[in-house]
């Protein structure tokens, strides 16, 4: 199992190394709206609602909790 994981990670990283841009090509990627979680407060509020109404949580980051609502 360990070997499979190590192999997968190596293949993934090797694949990833052919993607990407140079530092001077990051003008668009550097925009705040291109952050993966560009509005953390909205995300947290929505996640809290869904956490209390559905049986799934997390994925983007930790599963959350700290609430008796589920």
């Amino acid at each position: 199992m360990k070997r499979v994981i190590v192999f997968s990670v190596v293949v993934l990283l090797a694949g990833c190394s052919s993607l990407g841009v140079s530092p001077w090509e990051r003008q668009n990627l550097a925009k705040p709206e291109m952050e993966l979680n560009s509005s953390p407060l909205s995300t947290a509020l929505d996640d809290h609602i869904y956490f209390s109404k559905e049986a799934s949580s997390g994925g983007r980051s930790f599963g959350g909790g700290g609430c008796g609502c589920n």
Binding site: L12, C16, L19, G20, V21, E25, R26, Q27, N28, L29, M34, L36, G58, G59, R60, S61, F62, G63, G65
Partner: peptide, 24 residues
């Protein structure tokens, strides 16, 4: 008690796009 573990990779594809994959 709750324990959460997460592992992920974020990759820039080109000048305009990127992706992320996480396992938790």
């Amino acid at each position: 008690t709750l324990i959460d573990l997460i592992a992920g990779v974020t990759q820039v594809i080109d000048q305009n796009s990127l992706f992320q994959i996480n396992y938790s």
